[in-house]
């Protein structure tokens, strides 16, 4: 019921954008800005790149407004654009850098700052270490498995919607997720 309401709201807004209502675009941006940026960030693991790609996502939405038809759920279309851009960026970067293992290093020398000043230094280190372990484990997954896991875990998408985004069957998504979580369980077993 909730999903239907969301579909109707987003599609309705997008149809208004199509008719030239820029306020509706601002509303759509407000609703989906964070999920898109967070998803792309977890895919590419680089915040400036994630924001650049997310801008491209919304730019493409805006550019396609004239031809928009609410045939699929708006978020499926939105995340399809986002995952295409993120996967292309990952592939291009891999070609540029060769098949080097990024597993050992923090991407682009990213040093994550622990912003919470309330927690102790020790707690911060434990948290940082956990973050790094999870980040590397997710980073090591094959691209499609990674995209499926991120949508399943962090965006709380249903199998059918993930299938729509990745343009595959629901059973293929279940298989992708099973293999991805299997790898993560094996890799992060020591954390359990």
């Amino acid at each position: 019921m909730m999903a239907v309401a969301t579909l109707e709201r987003d599609a309705e807004l997008m149809l208004r954008v199509r008719d030239g209502d820029t306020e509706s675009f601002a509303l759509l941006l407000g609703r989906h800005r964070s999920p898109v940026i967070h998803f792309v960030y977890r895919m590419v693991q680089n915040q400036p790149v994630a924001e650049e790609l997310a801008q491209e996502v919304f730019l493409r939405v805006y550019r396609s407004r004239a031809n928009y038809e609410p045939t699929a759920k708006f978020t499926t279309w939105l995340f399809r654009i986002a995952s295409h851009l993120a996967l292309n960026w990952i592939r291009d970067r891999r070609h540029e850098r060769g098949q080097e293992s990024l597993d050992e290093a923090t991407p682009d020398g990213m040093v994550r700052q622990v912003s919470d000043r309330e927690i102790s230094k020790e707690q911060a280190m434990v948290r940082e270490s956990k973050f790094e372990e999870i980040r590397r484990a997710i980073h090591s997954l094959p691209e499609k498995q990674k995209a499926a896991v991120l949508m399943h875990k962090y965006e709380e998408m249903e199998y059918s919607q993930i299938a729509g985004v990745l343009e595959c069957s629901e059973s293929a998504v279940k298989s992708l997720l099973f293999r991805a979580y299997e790898s993560l369980r094996a890799r992060l077993a020591h954390m359990a």
Partner: peptide
């Protein structure tokens, strides 16, 4: 059991703060 632990542990992979000028740039 193992999956539940991984599921909880994955919460540690928090997203970064979004730049204040994201909308302006867009």
């Amino acid at each position: 059991g193992a999956q539940s632990q991984i599921w909880s542990a994955m919460d540690a992979f928090e997203a970064e703060t979004i730049s204040a000028d994201f909308d302006r740039k867009l």
